[in-house]
Design a binder for these strands. Structure first.
Lengths: 346, 346
DNA sequence: GTTAGCACTCTTCGAATGAGAGTGCTAAAT
DNA sequence: ATTTAGCACTCTCATTCGAAGAGTGCTAAC
């Protein structure tokens, strides 16, 4: 089913149907299009065009004598070629700017604020994929000895974000030694990923035949443990919003959706893809491989620090969603977050 | 409406009605009680007793010719005097023990693991109120200089829990100075609350007329900032489980409930009360002041470190919940968590 | 190419109906 | 004095039916 050339009229009517359906939530008939959008044309004419659009696969009827509803393909065409992207209102923009102003620089808080403001303004669910340790470059690393073999690693990213992690070693290292190690690591750290730091240490150890240098061995162990066992973390906000949608009045569907949100691993997978892709993406219903997303759409965009892509943010709503506005919202938010994380001198 | 003396038969029948209603979810009639529980008595007899129980206010009828349903008061009587508390099965106990074994000692992870296992075993929603900084006593405090006036405070509680917080000062303090301050604080810290530490510093400053001692002034500022602006944090898990309950098939109710969960502040309030109370509590429907809890019950118990009450954990489900089993579950989990947090030498 | 007209289909809603469950009451039985 | 059987009554729930309404596809006329 490749892309068809559509006549101007076909495009106009497809657009009209989608708009009406998005606002009303009910199958739209030829009559109402004729009235609201194309008063010059009669319902019958519109009907013919709609029949064509159905044949191409852009529209469908829930049952024989109902109006038309856009298909996933229809939405896709709309998003790709019909839709124009409005600007957000000044009010909304400043609302977002106010909403995402982390007092602390803690990654966690920032993520949570972002989901809050996104879900609030969209009235749908918001998702944010947090930056991974492996993806960031770091300004600073510190170790705090907690108890026995247990150590808290504090990482300050170039983006200004702070992340922590507790690791458990095989040996006890006391605080002064930890300080020495962090001093050393900090000298090697400048602007590269932790993975890279690790590689450099290995290289240096080999080169210097310095295998018994306690400090470096330990530095290696610490960075290994820090990177170990990391999986994408997703923050979700406003999931309840989706329940307000009339199309999910059916309880069975609702259950499914909430199930999907609690089973975060799948969500991580799909967001990871967006991350790899690099730009704003719209994923409509069945385009997603996730079963539970069949009736949902995802609008997501990566955010960066400088040129480094860190994570992804977006919103999840019904397929019948105001794509234009939502794309604008997600895009703006992603840019804003990127700016915050790029101007590291906060 | 004070407590009535109930005859043995009345108690038995009330108990039977509640049990049947809890398992079936449907109003229970005199017939079925006669069949399943009191084959010696006829339905008519049971009917008379039920009419009495209704008059007292322990049962009610959804409509004239339906079976009976327990009222909040009925449940209350059941929980207080009729119910006996079963033990969990060995399997379940070990499941919980496996489930709550924090690798890291980070407060956040521990809370999350607890909600996960609680919601999983109960099949309802789980809530955990995290320990507050003001309530714990601390083994150790550290400061990590992040950037400019921004400092990460790392607190290690006597319970072994690690909590962090970023604070922003009015002046820049470099790392060596921070280390000096934390060394000082750590000497004063032993086994008292942060609030108390603060008081001691103030006392000492007064006593020594030592107002210009930079170190102490700064130590004071740091502890103040650390305590500042703290509000109870609630972790929620398995909220979707509630959606599976037939009594919430009604979409309106469901919306309400999810709304309640996202509006965490109210939940904090009610959990705070449990915390003040000190023991395991069951709050049934309208007994709670929260509107959205009208159709829900909360079973919650505080957890401690030693004799210090730290927070509260519990589950939220429909009023029609297996109180006996759930009480056992919550009680066991709270004890376990308390043990973990008490044996500080993890 | 466009439109009016019309028969047809399908959903939705309300009313009517009957079955079923459960009650309360009375009078008889224990 | 309890307990029970019997019965009329009430209320819900599922089903059926029919009418109304919305929308379509097709045909024939403009």
């Amino acid at each position: 089913m490749h892309t068809h050339e559509l006549s101007l009229r076909q495009r106009q009517i497809l657009k009209a149907v989608i708009h009406d359906y998005i606002t009303s939530g009910e199958p739209v008939g030829s009559r109402s299009i004729s009235r609201r959008h194309h008063s010059s044309l009669s319902a019958a004419t519109i009907r013919n065009v709609m029949a064509d659009l159905e044949e191409i696969g852009y529209l469908s009827q829930p049952h024989t004598s109902a109006g038309r509803v856009p298909t996933d393909l229809g939405y896709r065409f709309y998003v790709d070629t019909l839709m124009h992207r409005p600007r957000l209102s000044k009010v909304e923009e400043s609302r977002i700017e106010q909403g995402i102003r982390p007092s602390s620089g803690q990654a966690e808080e920032l993520m949570q604020e972002t989901t809050r403001i996104l879900s609030h303004l969209s009235r749908y669910a918001a998702v944010v994929l947090a930056p991974k340790l492996t993806q960031s470059t770091w300004r600073r690393i510190d170790f705090v000895h907690l108890h026995r073999e247990r150590i808290l690693v504090v990482l300050v990213a170039d983006s200004g974000l702070v992340q922590q992690k507790v690791i458990v070693l095989d040996e006890v290292i006391d605080q002064p030694e930890l300080d020495r190690i962090s001093r050393y690591l900090n000298t090697v750290l400048a602007g590269v990923s932790l993975q890279e730091v690790r590689n450099r240490i290995v290289a240096r150890m080999a080169e210097e035949r310095d295998e018994f240098n306690e400090l470096m061995r330990r530095a290696l162990e610490l960075s290994d443990k820090t990177l170990e066992g990391e999986e994408g973390q997703v923050y979700i906000g406003g999931a309840a919003n989706i329940a307000h949608q009339p199309e999910f009045a059916d309880v069975k569907k609702m259950k499914e959706i909430f199930g999907a949100f609690e089973e975060k691993s799948k969500l991580v997978k799909i967001l990871d893809e967006c991350l790899a892709q690099g730009g704003l993406r719209v994923i409509i219903g069945r385009e997603s491989e996730i079963r539970e997303m069949r009736e949902l759409s995802l609008i997501a965009s990566p955010y960066k620090s400088g040129d480094h892509v860190l994570g992804v943010l977006g919103i999840v709503g019904p397929k019948r969603i105001a794509y234009d506005r939502m794309v604008a919202l997600v895009d703006f938010t992603a840019r804003l977050l990127s700016n915050i994380l790029t101007e590291a001198d906060a």
